[in-house]
């Protein structure tokens, strides 16, 4: 029982990375109605960019972090301007298949560029581990949590109080109407993609200091993010964040029961949610 705070903490760390990935996925889906199966690749790219900048080019961690997040944002914008612009208004199956193809493409690109071996991003911290309130942790994990909190607050403030944020929310509600009242949809999409990709990339960098970096991590992240948004309701920001934390916690506790089936916990949760609350825990009926 003494370990319960530890499990909660671990769950929150992993869950916050899920939340960061899911936020972008939700935003892209809410705005463009495209389920981006390549979204996890932004996370993977963020991690590899940081690995390249720090380990291979020898930059310090913080420069690497900023650089790789910006790099991922650029990739996101380029993709939005090209592929996703073509996919706008395409049928569901077309957009899903196209993003699946994109995801495989990016994963194998990474495989060719960086190789299959797991890598690590060097940590900026000297301290090895920290203990407080019965929880053992590392500064990297605390950073992950802190950054998540900051990002969530920033997104919340941005959505509520900036003109663009209001436009995004309006578009979420009603796309046609948004175009009618003169919201520049193209700019909005680009911005959303940049932020969504950047936040996922950021999660990749931060988690890359805790776990390993490898090409396959993107596909897994996509899967997890989809579980999160299915749990939380696919077009709800709050749902995405809550769903992410919930999945992190569920997996953390699931590992107590059966380490082998840790990953299955999330899957089973989703199945249950779909069965009893098909619109997600926080979703509204459309």
């Amino acid at each position: 029982m003494d370990l319960i705070p530890q499990y909660i903490f671990n769950g929150l760390v992993v869950g916050s990375s899920y939340a960061l990935i899911a936020v972008g996925l939700t935003a892209i889906f809410g705005l463009m109605e495209i389920a981006n199966f390549a979204h996890g690749q932004f996370y993977m790219l963020g991690a590899f960019f940081a690995y390249t900048l720090t380990r291979l080019l020898g930059l310090d961690f913080w420069t690497g972090l900023v650089g790789s997040v910006m790099g991922v944002m650029i990739v996101g914008v380029v993709l939005e301007r090209t592929l996703f612009r073509i996919l706008r208004g395409a049928s569901l199956s077309s957009s899903v298949l196209a993003t699946i193809a994109l995801s495989i493409f990016l994963e194998n690109l990474a495989l060719n560029v960086w190789g299959p071996r797991p890598q690590k991003i060097p940590t900026p911290f000297e301290t090895g581990s920290i203990a407080f309130a019965g929880v053992f942790t590392t500064p990297e994990r605390l950073l992950m949590l802190a950054v998540t909190v900051v990002i969530v607050i920033l997104l919340h403030v941005g959505l509520r109080h900036t003109q663009t944020g209001k436009a995004i929310r309006a578009t979420f509600q009603q796309r046609e109407a948004a175009a009618l009242v003169g919201i520049d949809i193209d700019r909005l999409y680009t911005l959303t993609f940049a932020i969504g990709a950047g936040v996922a990339g950021l999660a990749g960098v931060l988690l890359g200091t805790i776990f390993v970096v490898q090409p396959a991590m993107g596909g897994i992240a996509t899967l997890k993010a989809f579980i999160v948004v299915t749990l939380g309701g696919i077009s709800s920001f709050a749902g995405g964040i809550a769903g992410g934390l919930l999945l992190g916690l569920a997996e953390s506790f699931g590992a107590i029961i059966s380490p082998a089936y840790k990953d299955a916990v999330g899957f089973i949760l989703v199945m249950l949610v779909l069965l009893y609350k098909p619109d997600g825990l926080f979703g509204k009926r459309s």
Binding site: A98, I100, A101, L102, S103, I104, F105, N108, L109, N112
Partner: peptide, 8 residues
């Protein structure tokens, strides 16, 4: 990579 490009 080639396959996914083909599919795309």
């Amino acid at each position: 990579m080639t396959f996914s490009a083909i599919l795309l």
